[in-house]
Each structure stands twice: as C-alpha cells, then as structure tokens.
C-alpha cells in the first residue's frame, strides 16, 4: 500500500528531516509512528499527503510513484487518504453533520450520497444524537470523533492520524483508539504518529521508531521502547 524507497528530505535551513527511509506498509496494517518531537514524524505524514516532495528517493502509494503525479491530480490522491490531527480542525460555524457533509460536498458527491453516508458514519462514531450541535458544544473526545468521521466518511484507503489523542484524557484517548481499530478492521491502512507510550505498549501493533530523521527500529507487534520514552 505504502512504500518508501531511500526517501530523504532536508529542509531549506539545512536540517535533515528524514534520512534514507526504506519501508513497506501493507494494506490493512495498523502502524504506530513514534519518536520525539522533531524526529520527522510530521514530515513523514506530510510526504504521504504530498504536501511536500522528497529530495531523494521515491514514495509509492497503491503502486504509484506519487512524486510523478501531476499537480492537478494531487486532490484525487488526497481523496484516498483521510486525516486526523491533534487540534481536530473542525469548522466552528458548522454543525457536526455539516462538518462531515462538507468533506463530501467539496469533492462533488451528490446530495443523495451525503444524505445516506453522513448519518451512517455519525452512527459509527457514536454521535448520531449530536449531529445538530456545534463543535464548541462538544467535549474534546467528541470533537475528535467528528474529525475521525470526517476523515473516514469518503472511505479512504489510508487513514493518517497525527497525535490524535494528544489533547485528550485517557478515557477519551481510549475511545478514539477503539474507533481507529474498528476503522482498521474494515481494511483501511492506519498510520498513527503518537507520543502516548501506554497506548502503544498496550496495542501491540507494528511500531516504527524515528530518531532525528532516521528509522531506528521497525518492529512487528512492538512497544514504545525505553530509550524513546526518555525523550518525552
């Protein structure tokens, strides 16, 4: 599903963000991306979204080199990638329903699709009864579930999550994680960058550890690790 071949990225100020990364992520995998701040996690996700291009090497998604994609095709690539962020990024003046519907409307889905998909996905994330509330009327955990609903409503092949539990208490983190697991079970590849040691250790999924732009560990059914935990 995702393949990095000798991928390197250096920022204009000269600091290397990623150095010679090689990895494969299969369809339907659940991968934790861990490492201290500045280890290159965010760059990794931005490269997958093609918000940036690698300086060297290439990235393949669904068998295609995304670096060779013409600029106008990039939006179509992003329709296959859902995104969740630490700060939710919901539209404050739209209701829960409208926030999720917006994601379908702006890619030109007909109204009938919107009307059938949105209630269904809100049911999945357990917010069907809050669909007419504004984000400001919801708890942080609920807001993040809206964000997950928005990311998943178009049934993307890949779901990227950048510290999705970073702003949440343990109980809410737990509910987001179980939601991501359910999404993963539908066959969606999930890549989640996180600092949450307890969560990673409990889940026992594949763990990729980045340190100063280098991949220092790639472990199936891994743990967060002592060394990396000390960086926090």
């Amino acid at each position: 599903m995702i393949r990095f071949e000798n991928v390197g990225k250096t920022y204009p100020n000269g600091t290397p963000a990623l150095k010679d990364i090689n990895l494969d992520i299969e369809k339907g995998e659940f991968v934790f991306l861990v490492g201290a701040s500045g280890s290159g996690k965010t760059t990794f996700l931005r490269l997958l979204l093609r918000e940036e291009l690698p300086d060297s090497g290439r990235i393949l998604e669904a068998g295609r080199d995304i670096g060779e994609l013409p600029k106008w095709r990039v939006p179509y690539l992003r329709r296959n990638i859902g995104c969740v962020f630490q700060d939710f990024r919901l539209l404050p003046n739209k209701t829960v329903y409208e926030n999720v519907a917006f994601a379908l409307e702006v890619i030109g889905r007909p109204r009938s699709t919107v009307e059938s998909q949105v209630p269904q996905i809100l049911e999945l994330v357990g917010l069907a009864d809050k669909s007419n509330n504004l984000p400001s009327e919801l708890s942080g955990g609920e807001q993040q579930r809206v964000a997950v609903a928005r990311a998943f409503v178009n049934r993307p092949l890949i779901l990227l999550a950048d510290e999705p539990t970073g702003n949440l208490d343990p109980a809410n983190s737990e509910s987001i994680m179980s939601l991501l697991e359910r999404i993963n079970r539908t066959g969606t590849t999930v890549v989640m960058a996180t600092h949450d040691k307890a969560l990673v250790d409990r889940m026992r999924r594949r763990v990729i550890v980045l340190d100063k732009g280098e991949m220092v560990r790639d472990q199936v059914r891994g743990v967060y690790g002592v060394d990396e935990g000390a960086h926090r």
Partner: peptide, 12 residues
C-alpha cells in the same frame, strides 16, 4: 479554515 479543510479532503 474552510480552504484548508477542502484541500485536506481533496477538493480540486
């Protein structure tokens, strides 16, 4: 905000 969300979800 709308524009950034639109880009994120793949609006052309």
């Amino acid at each position: 905000r709308e524009v950034s969300v639109m880009k994120l979800v793949g609006a052309t």
